[in-house]
Simulated assay, not measured.
Amino acid sequence: MHDVLDPGSDRGRVYRSLVRHPHESAGRLAARTGLDEAAVRAVLHELAAADIVVTTGPGDAGAAWEAVPPAQVVEALLRHNDSVRTALRRTGTELERLYRAARRESGHYGALEVVEDHARVLAISRQLQQSARRQLRCIDVPPYSGTADFYLAQEALQRERMAAGVVYRAIYSGSAFDDPVAWPNMARMIEAGEQARTLDDPPLKLAIRDDDLAVVTLAADDRPGVVSLLIRPSSLFRALSNVFESLWRLAVPVSATGAATQIDARDRQILTLMASGATDDAIARHLGVGRRTVVRRVSALLAALGATTRFQAGVQAARRGWL
């Protein structure tokens, strides 16, 4: 139901119309939104099932509808995100136990190879990128221990692969914004074309090449350093691919301006009102400014936050401490 706050979706159009025009019938909503009345009724029943709208009159044909306050909707969506992340982390933990147990019990799992040599771990990272044909998906988590030279070498390789048509999709921990070496590298790669999103606390370090190889990097259990697990096509590979895609949908797009951007008090007010579901007109009236000014500032804030919807902007702004 995240798209209920997206003005471009059918749910978003119906909900926003109810925010502006309380106690409307399905027929009136159809006229206001330009949607077919049957489609509006279907959307209303979906939203009612999710406690986003309520009916205020008897009977489906003559019923009037009312929007649940946007602040409540945003809080409910954020709670849902938290529960999904918790479930994903729990699933990831169980998967790790499963393949560790499989190694102990059988001594061999055909789709899995353990690499403990540090030099080979680094070589695998380069080889993974050099051999990618279509895309590379990765989740990057701290600690960020690479040197400036390491990141410069990685940048050169990534630019070369992106120029060859390889798509990079990366999920970063929110703490990357605070790292003096990792964040500038991240910003430069986004400017070069990398698709980047952030999560507060991604559950694992992962890289997936096309649809044929995944590499999970973990802290070694019995010594300093890390080990890499190479996973080839298998049920485990599919599970890791699904974990990435689920986290990608939850993550928030980030622009190259990132956390370094500062905002003034008025922009903070605009963001707060946006997060509460206020329209551009309502924000303009509240702040005593022209609607064009609000539209211009909203557009600039969305760009600065790397967000495509107001909901994403609210989440990203809250993560960066702007609200």
Rank of each mutant, 00 (worst) to 15 (best):
A164Q: 14
S234D: 03
G174W: 07
S228I: 05
S145K: 00
A176E: 12
A214D: 00
R197N: 10
G225D: 10
F150M: 01
E245R: 13
A182H: 07
V227M: 06
E191A: 14
D210K: 01
I231S: 03
V141G: 12
L218T: 14
D211F: 02
L213W: 00
T217E: 11
P224V: 09
R137N: 05
R188T: 10
R223F: 01
F244Q: 11
R161D: 03
Y144L: 02
M189F: 03
Y151H: 02
N242Y: 15
L236I: 12
A153T: 02
P224K: 06
S145F: 00
R209C: 01
Q130R: 13
D210L: 03
Y151G: 01
D140T: 14
V166C: 04
S145G: 03
I190G: 05
D211K: 03
V166H: 00
S241F: 03
A220I: 07
P203E: 01
A132T: 01
D210W: 03
S173R: 01
V141T: 15
T147L: 03
R209L: 04
V227D: 05
S234L: 04
R169Y: 04
E245T: 15
T217M: 08
E191W: 08
R209H: 06
R232Q: 12
G193W: 11
R188S: 08
A182E: 12
P143Q: 09
K205Y: 11
A192V: 14
V215Y: 01
A176F: 11
A182S: 00
M162K: 07
V243E: 15
D149A: 01
L218R: 15
G165V: 09
R161M: 12
S145P: 00
M186C: 09
R133G: 05
M189P: 02
L236M: 12
R161I: 03
A156R: 01
I190H: 07
Q129R: 11
A132D: 02
A176T: 15
R209G: 02
D210N: 06
S131M: 12
D221K: 13
R197A: 11
R137I: 01
R133N: 04
D200A: 10
V216P: 00
K205S: 14
M162E: 06
D222M: 06
L206Y: 11
Q129A: 09
K205R: 14
E194G: 05
W183P: 05
A148I: 13
V226S: 10
E194L: 09
R137G: 03
V227G: 00
I171A: 03
L204W: 08
A207C: 05
R134W: 05
A163Q: 15
S145Q: 06
V227F: 04
G174A: 14
V166W: 01
A192P: 12
A239V: 12
L157E: 04
Y144R: 04
L206G: 12
G165N: 09
A164W: 06
R133H: 07
W248A: 14
